[in-house]
Simulated scan of single mutants.
Amino acid sequence: MRPKQRHLRFKHGAKGMTVVLRDQDQCVIKVCQLSHSGKFTLPLSKGQFNALTTGAFYVTTLVAHQPATTVKYTVAG
């Protein structure tokens, strides 16, 4: 999370990758498909931001012909 902004920044994105954001209850908050490789930023609404910062949240990346990868993040502060 960027300080005082509702943006999530990631590195090493691949073209065609699907990114799924889930809250601590595994409810889907946002789904995004990348159109280019490299760094990318996901803007969040106030409701999405509040849902993700109440506890841990999960980021799942889906790439064709590779297994899904899920990473758990917690927001400090």
Rank of each mutant, 00 (worst) to 15 (best):
M1H: 09
M1I: 08
R2A: 12
R2M: 11
P3A: 07
P3E: 06
P3N: 11
K4C: 10
Q5G: 05
R6V: 10
H7V: 12
H7T: 15
L8Q: 01
F10C: 03
K11S: 10
H12D: 15
H12R: 15
H12S: 14
A14L: 07
A14W: 00
A14S: 08
A14T: 11
K15Q: 06
G16D: 03
G16T: 02
M17V: 01
M17H: 00
T18K: 13
V20Q: 03
V20K: 05
V20G: 01
L21F: 05
L21S: 03
L21Q: 03
R22L: 10
R22C: 07
Q24K: 13
Q26K: 08
C27T: 07
I29D: 05
K30P: 01
K30H: 07
V31D: 01
V31L: 04
C32Y: 12
Q33K: 14
L34E: 02
S35Y: 08
H36T: 00
H36C: 02
H36R: 00
H36E: 02
S37T: 08
G38P: 03
K39I: 00
T41K: 11
L42F: 05
L42E: 07
P43V: 10
P43W: 08
L44H: 03
S45K: 08
S45H: 04
K46T: 15
G47P: 04
G47D: 11
G47W: 07
Q48W: 04
Q48I: 03
L52I: 05
T53N: 12
T54C: 10
T54N: 14
A56V: 08
A56S: 10
F57W: 08
F57K: 02
F57V: 03
Y58H: 04
Y58L: 05
V59I: 09
T60H: 02
T61H: 09
L62C: 00
A64H: 10
H65F: 14
H65D: 14
H65G: 14
H65M: 14
P67R: 01
A68Q: 09
A68Y: 10
A68G: 09
T69N: 15
V71A: 06
V71H: 10
K72I: 12
T74V: 11
T74Y: 12
T74S: 15
V75I: 09
A76D: 14
G77F: 00
G77M: 01
G77Y: 13
G77E: 02
G77L: 08
